[in-house]
């Protein structure tokens, strides 16, 4: 980055550090913090949406919907994350490619599965084999978002289902007494009153989600833990900046990052809790 960095073996001290910390590899490390944060924030709306849909499905009067809701929350919560990320998402990826394959290459005669190989015509590849690397990365990012949304959505569904069930009868009956329709009762009383019960569970989910990002590497998204391990490992003379085992230092940086994120999250959830506690007839409620 700086001019004096041209020959790293000739410099030392502060100059060495200023060069070392500004290599392209380090910038990839710094950028991965952004990737992780973007992924987290972009996924949350989908988690809440799926969670809400799952909770409603479980409470539905229609039997098939109820079964679907129960199956979704139980199965996805029961499958280990790493299995889900390795198999369900690769299946999703292959499913997309298969659909593209039958629409784009109808004349293809060879089988799709040959032994352990999964073969579709090159036009059906997702993204195309000739596509630039950033498109592959974006696609991996999209798969990761889908994975996190589905897995954490199942947990959120259970939390929200419990929260919806926890709202006292009396409050809903008051709505009936005021002549509200069932829909009005749900929108104006049931839903707003649910949040105070859902929030602790949802905040737990958020904290677990924050720490689950190393799973991303399974999908080829290079997250902060990957880069910390890669940069911190012992570097022999082939590298421009040889050094010993510095993984501890890099992981301390990650520790600081995660603790800061936790601290900020706690502040935000505190405010949210205060907001939804307003007017609640509970121990934590305020008037």
């Amino acid at each position: 980055m700086f001019e004096y960095c041209a020959d790293p073996s000739a410099i030392e001290g502060l100059e060495w550090w200023s060069c070392y910390l500004t290599t392209a590899k380090h910038f990839a490390f710094y950028k991965s913090f952004g990737t992780v944060l973007v992924l987290l924030f972009a996924t949350v709306p989908f988690i809440l949406l799926l969670g809400f849909a799952g909770a409603l499905a479980r409470r539905s009067k229609a039997f098939p919907l109820r079964v679907f809701g129960l199956a979704y929350t139980s199965i996805v919560r029961g499958v280990p994350d790493i299995v889900f990320f390795l198999f369900a998402l690769i299946a999703l990826d292959q499913g997309i490619e298969y659909l593209r394959h039958i629409t784009l290459c109808p004349d293809w005669s060879e089988p799709i599965r040959q032994g352990s190989d999964f073969i579709v015509c090159s036009e059906a590849k997702m993204p195309l084999g000739s596509a630039p690397q950033w498109q592959h990365e974006l696609y991996g990012f999209f798969l990761a978002m889908t994975g996190f949304a589905v897995v954490f959505g199942a947990f959120a569904a259970n939390t929200m289902y419990g929260a919806l069930q926890a709202v006292p009868h009396g409050q809903l009956e008051t709505g009936v007494a005021f002549g509200m329709s069932p829909r009005q009762i749900f929108r104006r009383i049931h839903l707003p009153q649910m949040w105070i019960y859902a929030l602790p569970g949802l905040s737990n989910l958020w904290m677990i989600l924050v720490k689950a990002t190393p799973l991303l590497f399974l999908l080829g998204v290079e997250d902060i833990v990957y880069w910390a391990r890669e940069l911190g490992g012992t570097k022999i003379g082939l590298y421009s900046y040889p050094h010993g085992d510095w993984r501890l230092a890099y992981f301390v940086v990650l520790l600081v990052f995660y603790l800061t994120l936790t601290w900020v999250s706690e502040r935000v959830f505190e405010r949210l809790t205060r907001f939804v506690s307003k007017g609640q007839d509970t121990l934590g409620g305020t008037l």
């Binding site: 290599t23 590899k25 590298y239």
Partner: peptide, 14 residues
């Protein structure tokens, strides 16, 4: 990308 000298990610991230 983690097996020098066969293959590794250099300081330019390549």
């Amino acid at each position: 990308g983690a097996y020098p000298p066969f293959n590794f990610v250099n300081d330019n991230g390549e």
